[in-house]
Amino acid sequence: MEKVHEYYQFILPLVIEAGKVMKNVVEVKTELKNNDYGDIVTQYDRQIEEVLIRKIKDRYPTHCHIAEEEMSTKDEKPNLTDEPTWIIDPIDGTANFARGIAFTCVSVGLTINKEQVLGVVLNPYLDELFTAIKGEGAFLNGTRIFTSGCKDINTSTMNYEITIARNEKYYDLYMYRFKHLIKTVAGILAMGSAVMGLCYVACGKTDAYQCDGLYPWDAAAGTLIVREAGGFVSDSSGEEFDLMNPNFLATASEELCQQYLEVEGNADEEREQCLREGKEYMP
């Protein structure tokens, strides 16, 4: 773990500098990405990512990286190897960032031997620095954090990125689950940043976060931070979480996760039945 501490001390000031770039932005120009989500990108996403990659390669030339904007220009899926791999989301919650909404962040995760070992997330607007090293706990601005520990779905507040449903591939999946969840949980939020959504489960501000159809950079740092804060992360199907195909359910406790999986499982069964019968989604 000595090396991981070295990597932490290396990446932390780079993430803080990236946060300063975000905070000092005056004008943001957006472009539409070529994907099914209607995602946008700004000049600052690219600028921050390029600087992070360059400085990582200068210091550790044998290390690998997986970065959002770089991968968005390639018609291929990222490949995770055993080599130290930096997984970078230069600005997560770009739509929030472009609109001046202070729920956005820089996120960097590190894997070694395909295992998540380090996560650093900074929201410069709210001065929230979330960090975790595998086996050493999770922290917010240097103070140890824990999930809420919630074990009852009926009293839980959930973060659910319903806007993913605009992708036709996920529309039915999201809408059927939403139909079941809205009748069960105490509250549902849609906050617009996967990484910050995970970090807010870690620090107890929300109790659960579920999202399908994301990418490794959306989950590499945040899921580690949740686990190190005492939370539980599962694939939303109930299978083991797969960083390279991150359909995740992150909860304050394992007991809460199982309750969410049961509700969402019932929703998925209803959806499958309607598909077999040729029915379109019905609320």
Score class of each variant (00 low, 15 high):
residue 5 H to K: 08
residue 17 E to A: 14
residue 17 E to P: 03
residue 18 A to Q: 05
residue 20 K to M: 12
residue 22 M to G: 07
residue 26 V to H: 01
residue 34 N to M: 12
residue 38 G to M: 03
residue 41 V to R: 00
residue 43 Q to I: 04
residue 44 Y to E: 14
residue 59 R to I: 06
residue 62 T to G: 02
residue 66 I to S: 10
residue 67 A to E: 01
residue 69 E to P: 05
residue 76 E to M: 11
residue 76 E to G: 04
residue 80 L to G: 03
residue 80 L to Q: 05
residue 81 T to H: 05
residue 84 P to K: 04
residue 97 F to L: 00
residue 100 G to K: 01
residue 107 S to F: 08
residue 122 L to G: 07
residue 144 R to S: 14
residue 145 I to A: 05
residue 150 C to Y: 05
residue 150 C to L: 09
residue 152 D to H: 03
residue 153 I to S: 09
residue 158 M to S: 02
residue 160 Y to K: 10
residue 163 T to K: 12
residue 167 N to R: 13
residue 172 D to C: 06
residue 174 Y to T: 03
residue 175 M to V: 04
residue 179 K to N: 04
residue 180 H to D: 09
residue 182 I to S: 10
residue 184 T to M: 07
residue 188 I to V: 12
residue 192 G to K: 00
residue 192 G to L: 00
residue 194 A to F: 07
residue 197 G to R: 08
residue 199 C to M: 02
residue 199 C to D: 10
residue 207 D to N: 11
residue 210 Q to W: 11
residue 210 Q to S: 15
residue 212 D to L: 13
residue 214 L to C: 13
residue 215 Y to W: 15
residue 223 T to R: 01
residue 231 G to F: 02
residue 233 V to D: 08
residue 234 S to C: 13
residue 242 D to R: 10
residue 243 L to S: 00
residue 247 N to T: 02
residue 250 A to Y: 06
residue 251 T to A: 15
residue 256 L to W: 04
residue 264 E to T: 15
residue 269 E to G: 00
residue 273 Q to T: 09
residue 277 E to I: 03
